[in-house]
Design a protein around this nucleic acid. Structure first.
Length: 450
RNA sequence: UCCGCAGUAGCUCAAUGGUAGAGCAUUCGGCUGUUAACCGAAGGGUUGUAGGUUCGAGUCCUACCUGCGGAGCCA
């Protein structure tokens, strides 16, 4: 009786007769030889059916199996230099488990994005999507490992929340019994601050929801975010945590998937090798200067009528948009940390810089190669009175934040944290054009199926 | 919400206002080493929807629907 094996372990069984359970990925034929590409979730192996080695019925059947037939193949594991994995299976018998009820919609040639997204449940079977999902898994495990190794406690935040935590974003509304409306969380941060005062170093890792009608390659309505929060930590310490964290995640993914990233996803992995601490730090005010110089150079190279069509030059106080992010990030070979943003454009809970109260002690990490903001975070306001004023100034409902103010009433301490979007991080590591491929079933403004 | 582009065979795309086409996939046949194999044959269409212009509309016009790309906002 042949042993059941997975493709990933095939090298351990050279010369032995084994049985492989999988799906038919592709098929080629050459008269008295049929070549079956069989994938089992751990890899793909070529199974060679030679007319002399199987029954005539099996030989005929092997040449007529449609793509995605589920089957068991039994045969000898043979070393084969022409194979990408170094081995093949010399087939002795075939057992078809289920033939497709109809033609498999996804061929091996190109397809449009819309079609592939409609067939997402099947698209996951393709080699590229396989690699991406495996990288995502590694990234998620690396995130957990990084914080676990440093003594952080994983604290799960609520998904139903009573109000907008920052009072800005558009939230998904759901009816909630007799209490009126609840909202799907857009951030666990405030809850993590409470947890940090209890456990010191904490992080949450879960889904996040934004109802904004953003239609770009960087947006989903449902995405996964990791949000660490640390008591007794200032902005400088927070920034060190960010760069060490990002480097660890990238290097872990690289160590495990270097070959797949470059071979299947055609990622230039040398760009990821450079991701090591320290990351360049640049104050917002300096970033504005860098951007303005780049915009001036751009304008000097254009005729006046073209210049007139451009949006106005960036000035201090403007947000750093997608194009500006790329301008700043492209000057470096590793992620850039932009810190001390104008206080007016940041959420109420950011602590202001004692040296210059017009800026907040916040920091964003911009990924290279145009992938944009992957992390946002900073030091939180820990003074009760200042925070009360900030809530009033932002015209937020005071009573909703009473519990949050309690954190400052009872043993307040300096603390900081950040949030990282998993999908943007995976898209960057994999070198993908759009974040929709980094999550198994993307939720976007115009798509909720499958 | 705004701006732009596109909807033709299962998929990817062609088609001066004048007979609806190809590649892949499917089915059948050929080939003992194929790597997106190759060669031969066959089947496959209410051109997104509804109006309009015209002798004649896949093609031109209007509206709508769906999708894609971008902006704003954000991770």
């Amino acid at each position: 009786m042949a042993e059941n094996v997975y493709v990933a372990d095939i090298a351990l069984h050279e010369g032995k007769e084994v049985t492989l359970h999988g799906w038919l990925h592709g098929r080629r034929s050459s008269g008295k030889l049929h070549f079956l590409q069989v994938r089992d979730g751990t890899g793909t192996v070529q199974c060679v059916v030679f007319k002399g080695n199987v029954t005539p019925e099996a030989f005929t059947e092997a040449d007529h199996l449609p793509q995605e037939t589920s089957l068991a193949v039994t045969g000898l594991v043979k070393k084969e230099p022409r194979s990408p994995i170094g081995f093949e299976i010399d087939v002795r018998s075939l057992a078809v488990h289920a033939r497709p009820a109809r033609e498999y919609p996804l061929g091996h040639k190109e397809h449009g994005v819309a079609f592939l997204m409609e067939q997402r449940h099947l698209w996951l079977r393709s080699p590229r999507q396989n690699v991406i999902l495996r990288v995502r898994h590694t990234v998620e495990k690396a995130i957990r490992d990084f914080f676990d190794q440093r003594g952080f406690t994983l604290v799960d935040g609520p998904i139903f929340t009573p109000n907008a935590c920052e009072g800005t974003s558009t939230l998904f509304e759901v009816p909630y019994f007799d209490l009126g409306k609840a909202y799907l969380t857009q951030s666990n941060q405030l809850y993590m601050e409470a947890a940090a005062m209890a456990l010191g170093k904490v992080y949450s890792f879960g889904p996040t929801f934004r109802a904004e009608k953003s239609k770009t390659r960087r947006h989903l309505t449902e995405f996964w975010m990791v949000e660490p929060e640390v008591a007794w930590l200032d902005l400088e310490g927070d920034m060190r945590l960010m760069e060490e964290f990002v480097s660890f995640v990238v290097q872990t993914a690289l160590a495990k998937h270097r070959d797949e990233l470059s071979r299947v996803l055609e990622r230039d992995v040398s760009k990821l090798d450079a991701v090591q601490p320290p990351f360049p730090r640049i104050p917002y005010t300096e970033a504005v200067e860098v951007i303005r110089r780049a915009q001036e150079a751009q304008r000097a190279a254009l005729p006046p009528e073209e210049v007139a069509k451009l949006p106005p030059m960036m000035t201090w106080g403007d947000d750093i948009g997608g194009d500006e992010e790329t301008l700043v990030a492209s000057a470096y070979d590793r992620p850039v940390m932009v810190h001390r943003y104008p206080a007016a454009m940041k959420a109420f809970y950011f602590k202001k810089d004692a040296q210059d109260p017009s800026v907040a002690l916040g920091c964003d990490v911009l990924a290279p190669e145009g992938y944009g903001e992957i992390i946002g975070g900073g030091q939180r306001e820990d003074d009760l009175e200042t925070l009360e004023k900030a809530i009033a100034h932002h015209q937020l409902p005071r009573e909703a934040f009473e519990w949050y103010l309690d954190l400052r009433r009872y043993g307040t301490v300096p603390h900081a944290g950040f949030g990282m979007g998993v999908e943007r991080c995976v898209a960057w590591i994999c070198g993908l054009h759009h974040v929709r491929e980094t999550i198994p079933f993307a939720r976007m403004t115009e798509r909720i199926t499958p």
